[in-house]
Amino acid sequence: MTEQNTQIETTPQRPDLNVEAIEPGKSILLTPEQLPWITKNEIVVPTVLVHTTEGLTFRYGSTVGAHSSVERLAHQVQPPQSISAERTMFKSLPFLFKGKKPPHIDHVSDINAAWPVSKVAKVGADAPRLFFTWFNDDKNQPVVLKLAIAGHKKQDELLGVLRHTSVRRHKDGRSR
């Protein structure tokens, strides 16, 4: 079996997320064992090193392009709504890194990812649901991954993908 190693596109940098500086960061190699909805055997996720105005430093990357349905649902979200949800996620990180529970961030159950998955919720009737996770790398530096985003009315469809209930797999790990 040939190893598939696919590099997905990084999220464009945006100047409106209350960050002080963004610079290129080290890429991350991810597998379906870590994020079960990934349809390749491996993906390489570019990251950027983010320094926030509150003194936080972390690597940030997006795996939205790792699944065609996840990518399609993300493209349906209007940019202002996507930016607003992403800003809410960034605001929550100081709390999450300290082990606290930001009131506007929910825990998502039943996703068998390697790390707990959280969701930005409650920012308007047509507002998107943004799913993300974070973990510490081998140098104990936080890494934040934007996993998916979809409109409220598409939440059920998106969760079907993330919970891996709508994807069949061959025994060799490839999806069909």
Binding site: P80, P103, K122, A125, D126, A127
Partner: peptide
């Protein structure tokens, strides 16, 4: 916390 949202946006 929804202060940054469009004021025309309806709440959930």
């Amino acid at each position: 916390e929804n202060e940054d949202m469009d004021p025309d946006t309806e709440p959930d």
